[in-house]
C-alpha cells in the first residue's frame, strides 16, 4: 500500500499526480455524479414551483399589492393545473363578530350531507373523499369515541345510536396554534383558526397537537375535475391547497364573512346545525347557549371549543 502511494502517473494539464490522489478525485467525481443522479427526480419540481412562490412572505407581511399579485398567480395556476376559472378573495373578519356553532345531536341523523357539502365547497381531493367533517355513529349512553364508528354505510338513523359530527371547533385556546414553529396558523379576530397554505412547512406538529383530529395534511396534490372546482375561493379558506401543507375547517370564512351560512349548515337536511355570532345576544347561537344544555368535547383539556353540542 505504502509503495503504491508514492507512485505517480502523468496526466495532461495537471501533470504529475499521485495515483492515489487521482483515484480519490475520480471517486469523488463518481460520487457526485451518483448523488446528482439520485436526486434527479427533483427536476420534476421544475415548472411546479415558481420563484415567486418560493420567496413569498408570510400572509401578515403582505401588502395589498403583494396580495393582488399572489391571488392572480394562484388564479392562473388554478387555470393551468385544474382548467378552472376561479376568483380568489380575502374577506376580513367582521368587527364585533365571534363565530359560534352548535349541533343538535337529537336531530342529527348521521346522513353525512355535511361531509359531502364540505368536500365540494372546499375543493377537497376527490379520490380520498377528503372532508373537514367526520360523522361518528355512537351508541346511546356514551361519549367515548372508543365505541364510535365513522365508516358505517347502513341506513340511518339506527335504533340505539346517535350521530356525532366532528370538525374543527375553532378553540378559543387552540393548542395547534401554539405549537406551529413558523406561525403559519393563527387565530383571527372572529375566532377562526386559519392556515397560510403558502407559509406552512408541513411539519405536522399541529396535527399532533390537535385533540380533535381536526387537521388534515395534503399528502399529495388534490385532484379535482375542472367542472367540480368551486370558483368562489378565499385565500385563507377553500382555495385549492398545494401538496405538503396542513389544512383545516375555517367555518367557510369566504362565505361566513360575507354573512352567509357555512356550506355544511346549508346542506344539513335535518336542521341540526346552528351558526352565528357569539357576541350578538339576539343571535341563534346565543339562544342555543342560553336555552339548551350544551357541552363540548374533551372540555377538561381547556382548549375551549366554540362548537357546542346539545341534545333536546
Amino acid at each position: 500500500m505504502s509503495d503504491s502511494d508514492k507512485r505517480t502517473i502523468s496526466l495532461p494539464v495537471l501533470g504529475e499526480v499521485s495515483r492515489r490522489t487521482a483515484l480519490k478525485a475520480g471517486g469523488a467525481t463518481l460520487g457526485l455524479a451518483a448523488f446528482a443522479a439520485a436526486v434527479s427526480p427533483l427536476a420534476g419540481l421544475r415548472g411546479r414551483l415558481s420563484a415567486q412562490e418560493l420567496m413569498q412572505r408570510h400572509y401578515k407581511e403582505l401588502s395589498a399589492d403583494d396580495k393582488a399579485k399572489i391571488f392572480e398567480r394562484l388564479e392562473n395556476e388554478a387555470k393551468e393545473r385544474y382548467g378552472a376559472d376561479v376568483k380568489i378573495k380575502d374577506p376580513k373578519a367582521i368587527p364585533g363578530v365571534r363565530y359560534g356553532y352548535a349541533i343538535n345531536l337529537s336531530v342529527c341523523n348521521g346522513n353525512g350531507a355535511c361531509m359531502e357539502a364540505c368536500h365540494r365547497e372546499n375543493n377537497h381531493d376527490r379520490s380520498t373523499n377528503q372532508s373537514y367533517i367526520r360523522v361518528f355513529e355512537m351508541p346511546i349512553g356514551t361519549t367515548d369515541f372508543k365505541h364510535g364508528d365513522s365508516t358505517y354505510t347502513h341506513d340511518v338513523p339506527r335504533e340505539g345510536k346517535y350521530y356525532l359530527p366532528v370538525q374543527c371547533f375553532q378553540c378559543e385556546n387552540p393548542p395547534c396554534v401554539d405549537v406551529c414553529p413558523v406561525e403559519a396558523t393563527w387565530q383571527e379576530e372572529d375566532g377562526i383558526v386559519v392556515v397560510d397554505y403558502n407559509w406552512c412547512i408541513g411539519c405536522r406538529y399541529c396535527q399532533a397537537a390537535c385533540p380533535y383530529h381536526a387537521r388534515r395534511f395534503n399528502w399529495k396534490e388534490p385532484q379535482i375535475p375542472a367542472e367540480e372546482v368551486n370558483p368562489d375561493q378565499g385565500y385563507l379558506s377553500n382555495r385549492i391547497r398545494p401538496a405538503g401543507v396542513v389544512e383545516k375547517c375555517h367555518f367557510c370564512l369566504h362565505r361566513t364573512r360575507e354573512g352567509r351560512q357555512p356550506a355544511c349548515l346549508e346542506a344539513c337536511p335535518t336542521g341540526a346545525r346552528i351558526f352565528g355570532n357569539l357576541l350578538d345576544p339576539e343571535s341563534e347561537i346565543r339562544t342555543v347557549l342560553r336555552t339548551k344544555r350544551v357541552f363540548v368535547l374533551k372540555e377538561e383539556l381547556g382548549a375551549r371549543p366554540t362548537l357546542f353540542y346539545f341534545f333536546d
Partner: peptide
C-alpha cells in the same frame, strides 16, 4: 325552537343585515 331559529335549519345569511334567510315550514321536512 323553530321560532328562535334553532329548529328546522335555514339557508342564506346568518347575518340578516347582509341578506335574507330562508326557512322551511314544518311540513317541508
Amino acid at each position: 325552537d323553530y321560532e328562535r331559529g334553532l329548529h328546522g335549519g335555514m339557508t342564506g345569511f346568518w347575518d340578516r343585515t347582509k341578506g335574507p334567510q330562508k326557512r322551511k315550514s314544518c311540513i317541508d321536512c
